[in-house]
Amino acid sequence: MGLAVGVLILLLCVVGNLALGVSDIPLAEVYRAFVAYDGSTEHLIIRTIRLPRSLIATFVGAALAVAGAIMQGLTRNPVASPGILGVTAGASLAVVITTFLLNAESLGFYVWFAFIGAAITAIGVYFLGSLGPGGLTPINLTIAGAALTEFLSSITSGILIVSQQTLDQVRFWLAGSLAGRDLDLFWQVLPYFILGLLLALGLGRQLTMLSLGEDVAKGLGQRTIFVKITAAVSVVLLAGASVAIAGPIIFIGLIIPHITRALIGVDYRWLLPYAAIFGAIFLLLADLAARLLFQPQEIPVGLVMPLIGAPFFIHLVRSQVKR
């Protein structure tokens, strides 16, 4: 029931994102752009600019929220986010190095380097974390992630300080934005989103057990290693694909799981789908705000999200966290 309402709101947001913008397009025209495409400017805007953008916002929002919820469950740490695995730092460094060395400045190019950078870093964090005492415990993972993130970020900063040209070329990407992405790019990353989401949703029950503690989960007969690895693969796919296409935005992955938990509870079978919907709605709204607030200048959505979401988050913390 609640999920149906959520999906309905999500659809409304998508339609809103299609219709509203620097030039508002009536709903009837939006409808005709899909069923009776005539090549007019309005139809062109909708099909080549706003549709890809809305689809990307939906999937990136859902993916980051789900990845964040999984990370917080796995590490039992409220501060955990996909960023803890180093994906954002890895993707940023890969893009900055690419730009610095090859002087490349195309989004299609960025996508693959960002994805590879994110994946390699996440694997590195897992490897280093598993070397600590007691194997792959939450605290080991967190320490390894924080250290590697800091290390990679310092190299990124070093390059940006030495080369002003690179800084100028990548600073918009580094803020996190959905502008200028086309459908081609979306089709390229879609398989990763779908695979990651399916893995995550299939793990709901297991994650609920695991979030009660490793011993409890083992006592209930869970093969925790298997669950952890599957969850990690899912997070890398979801966060990697998101960062690859939208730049390093981690706010959704940190905040939406908290909000969802406060509203829905801690059962991951429900938490994950709701987080996906909330994440998608939030990113769609934030992107709308990013396009409309300072017309015609567009602001990267990665900068708008915290300004909208953080006050709400703080309010939630004040009312929910008793001690």
Binding site: G302, L307, R318, V321
Partner: peptide, 25 residues
């Protein structure tokens, strides 16, 4: 409360960070 302090800290750090990135961009 230590937990509240950390979570509120995250929220405000994000706002400050976002405004900083805004100027950098």
């Amino acid at each position: 409360s230590p937990v509240r302090l950390i979570l509120v800290g995250i929220g405000l750090n994000f706002i400050a960070g976002s405004l900083t990135s805004f100027m950098i961009t």
